[in-house]
């Protein structure tokens, strides 16, 4: 049963690649958004909060369509990026990574924001009285203490990105080797006669990858909390 065809292997590899790039690229922005939401006071905070969460509540097809309109070759941002940076999203794997990043973003930010909010501000004050400026405090105290939440957010958004279907297929279609991710490949199998066996193979892979992601996050979180121990 587990003789994967080259197309299936391509879909699995593409999914892993797209999800990894999507999460890695959105992590800096996710850290910034989470920190802003957890710590800063500014007008329009509710708006930022809503914007971050939008992909979680919108139908994925709507998110995908909006991406197509804005980031497509004729979109406002998309045409600009193509003209000045040569970056093209529509119907490319890069677009699948963008869709994965956008769909995983709310989960990433939520988890990181919670851990920033839970970080003991008094430890940051202590670091400042020892001569550390805000940047050093962030990288040596805030960030390490928030690490369990950051890891949780990364794994959650990675799992979400692996399974992303609606926004991806709307934005970048379903092109073998370019934008046919694991869910899109499963969908394709279900649309052809005799595709059941192939679909089942990929479904098993999807389940294994998802469970693996959760197990890894749990192990990482435990290791981190054991290392830090209770706040002393």
């Amino acid at each position: 049963m587990f003789d994967f065809t080259p197309e299936e292997i391509a879909a699995i590899r593409l999914s892993l690649w797209v999800a990894s790039i999507g999460v890695a690229a959105s992590l800096p922005l996710g850290l910034l958004a989470a920190y802003a939401l957890a710590r800063w006071r500014f007008s329009g905070k509710i708006l930022l909060d809503a914007l971050v969460h939008l992909p979680l509540v919108l139908p994925p097809v709507v998110t995908g369509y909006l991406l197509l309109v804005v980031m497509g070759r004729r979109g406002v941002v998309g045409s600009f990026l193509e003209q000045y940076f040569g970056i093209v999203f529509s119907f490319r794997w890069t677009g699948a990574a963008l869709a994965a990043a956008v769909m995983g973003f709310p989960l990433l930010v939520r988890a990181i924001r919670l851990s920033f909010e839970a970080t003991d501000r008094r430890l940051e004050d202590a670091a400042r009285t020892l001569g550390a400026n805000r940047m050093i405090v962030f990288f040596t105290v805030t960030l390490p203490l928030a690490l369990p939440g950051i890891l949780a957010g990364v794994v959650l958004s990675f799992a979400k990105a692996l399974g992303e279907f609606g926004a991806t297929i709307t934005f970048v279609s379903n092109i073998p080797g370019e934008s046919r991710t694991l869910p899109a490949a499963i969908y394709t199998y279900t649309q052809v006669p005799g595709g059941d066996e192939g679909a089942m193979r990929l479904v098993v892979v999807a389940i294994v990858l998802s469970v693996l992601a959760l197990v890894v996050s749990e192990i990482l979180a435990r290791r981190v909390s054991r290392r830090f121990g209770a706040l002393g």
């Binding site: 008094r122 430890l123 202590a126 670091a127 040596t140 390490p144 830090f228 121990g229 209770a230």
Partner: peptide, 10 residues
Amino acid sequence: VFQESRLFPH
């Protein structure tokens, strides 16, 4: 130095 030592746990 504070009442709670505020050592960095990591």
